[in-house]
Amino acid sequence: MDDNATTSGGTALAVLVEEAARILGRPPGRLEPGQHLQHDLGFDSVMLLQLKGRLEARFPVLREVSLPDLLLGVHTLGALAGRLERTTGLPVA
């Protein structure tokens, strides 16, 4: 339901891209908000868990949120960034 929120990620997007790129072993510059986590980037369930673990280290408040809640209705990097921003409630510096 959040796929339209591709532009609202702000700096949460930067953190997300950085962590996603590290898991994928790709340069962050190759990642874009519109990319589908699974269909375009090849994320599988273990990688999603890993991503959640890394994001928790950056935003401890995420420990309160389960992975399924974080991902519900989210398909793209941008949408996930939007969800992150709302969940953490913080603009990310």
Partner: peptide
């Protein structure tokens, strides 16, 4: 409210 099963959880609501 902060539990993962609460009504705050989008997954619970849906």
């Amino acid at each position: 409210a902060r539990s993962r099963a609460s009504l705050r959880s989008a997954r619970t609501r849906s």
